[in-house]
């Protein structure tokens, strides 16, 4: 994917993110995720149905990278099993750490493939994934 396409996908997901809404319904689990070193702060609402992630929404204030990453996460992980989601997240972390990862699996998540070069923005991209990961691991306990 060339850098112009990546840019366009990030901007589209930032300007018009998927499912940016608070969910008060009881079946939604709420997790907060924030970055200690900056001001990104997002609440993620997740609905599990048995082993499946049936829905994810979010609300909060964060930078373009965090918001777009949240939207892309939502686009790619709704309907997945918890295990599939964890695998996706692990691959995403590998990409942001400049380690080996499965490009096909990440789909449009690869728009952040260069983010490891910007140390201070890496945590912006991983922010929503850390929240979702926490929720999944909790639910598996």
């Amino acid at each position: 994917m060339d850098s112009e396409t990546k840019r366009a996908i990030i901007m589209e997901n930032y300007m018009h993110p998927t499912n940016r809404k608070r969910m008060e319904e009881e079946e939604y689990l709420k997790v907060n995720t924030n970055n200690a070193s900056c001001i990104d702060n997002i609440d993620i609402y997740i609905k599990f149905k048995d082993n499946i992630i049936e829905d994810i929404t979010f609300e909060g204030e964060a930078c373009a990278i965090s918001i777009s990453a949240t939207s892309i996460m939502i686009n790619n992980l709704i309907g997945k099993t918890k295990e599939e989601a964890l695998k996706y997240i692990a691959n995403f972390y590998n990409m942001t750490n400049n380690e080996e990862y499965n490009e096909d699996l990440l789909k449009e998540g690869v728009v952040y493939s260069d983010i490891y070069k910007q140390g201070n923005r890496k945590t912006c991209a991983t922010l929503p994934f850390r929240g979702l990961e926490k929720a999944i691991l909790e639910s598996l306990k």
Binding site: I39, D40, N120
Partner: peptide, 21 residues
């Protein structure tokens, strides 16, 4: 535009400003 994005933008030109509360 979120303040942090402005700070990142300026950082590309070696300008140090603070974003946040």
């Amino acid at each position: 535009i979120f303040s942090q994005d402005v700070a990142y933008y300026l950082n590309k030109y070696n300008i140090c400003v603070r974003a946040g509360n």
